[in-house]
């Protein structure tokens, strides 16, 4: 366990070394959020609410989903590059689980971006736009936990596709398709409130809703009591399902690698 913590901390410190990246990250996150807020401000015009959703709720949704999705990005070509140049065996010889070691590294990067990219961008946004306050301190706290679960779902989706590098020459295209799907179905492009009812229903059966939208709804108090528990339970179930799948693909990939001789 300590080895993984150390890997995460190491990545965190590594990111701190690049000052330009640090400032550009803040600017990048802030611009993305502001652009979306401007678009939706214009769309709302003078109306107070659309379909029972206020502009303030939309703004809050975008600050959370865009801020998180910016922070949760990392090099998704990592495994493919390692498999292609054969250095995957260097990784496999290390006495740590590769899955947890990669997760630790990405979490280290994510934590850095949350603190140094998202927080400043959030403060900047709060200067000019009024956001909804959390439903309660407890909701805020549960939302933090739900964000972590959401991250794991997103990470596992990416990892599963990354493991296909063992069979495919390039997974870049599939990763791109996945990212488009996440943008559309997880609500970083259009808040899921505005999706047609049928599509919304469909999305609720996919892991995408559980990535950003569940935390947003917990924050706003849309999910409370039994519904909140259900939302979190769905997240946990997705993590279990995707985790098992990821492990199966990973094990099969390594097996293929050793049979064919590195």
């Amino acid at each position: 366990m300590r080895a993984y913590v150390e890997i995460a901390v190491k990545k965190f410190q590594d990111k701190m070394a690049y000052r330009l990246d640090f400032f550009m990250g803040i600017v990048n996150t802030a611009i993305t959020i502001v652009v979306y807020l401007c678009i939706y401000r214009a769309l709302y015009g003078n109306s107070v609410e659309v379909d029972g959703i206020t502009y303030q709720m939309v703004a809050t949704n975008f600050v959370i989903t865009l801020g998180l999705s910016n922070a949760f990005g990392y090099n998704e070509m990592f495994l493919q590059d390692k498999v292609r140049d054969g250095s995957i065996t260097n990784e496999l010889l290390k006495p740590v689980s590769f899955i947890f070691r990669l997760l630790a590294e990405n979490v280290g990067e994510g934590a850095f971006k949350l603190i140094f990219h998202f927080l400043p961008a959030l403060l900047f946004t709060m200067v000019h736009t009024r956001l909804c306050p959390p439903q309660s301190a407890l909701h805020l706290l549960i939302m933090f936990g739900s964000v972590v679960l959401g991250y794991l779902i997103l990470w596992l989706l990416s990892f599963i596709i990354q493991t296909w590098s063992f069979w495919l020459f390039s997974v870049w295209g599939i990763i791109t398709i996945k990212n488009v799907l996440v943008n559309i179905l997880a609500g970083t492009l259009l808040p899921l409130w505005f999706m047609p009812a049928a599509l919304r229903r469909l999305i609720s059966y996919t892991p995408f809703e559980a990535i950003y939208f569940t935390p947003v709804r917990i924050y706003l108090g849309e999910l409370s009591g039994a519904q909140l528990l259900l939302g979190v339970a769905v997240q946990v179930i997705w993590i279990a399902v995707l985790g098992v799948t990821a492990n199966v693909f990973w094990k099969k990939g390594v097996k293929k690698l050793v049979v064919q001789g590195g």
């Binding site: 065996t89 496999l92 010889l93 006495p95 740590v96 590769f98 390594v254 050793v258």
Partner: peptide, 13 residues
């Protein structure tokens, strides 16, 4: 078994 921590801990290469 490559990728198994318990095995890999027994050797360096």
């Amino acid at each position: 078994l490559i990728g198994e921590s318990r095995f890999c801990r027994d050797l360096t290469y």
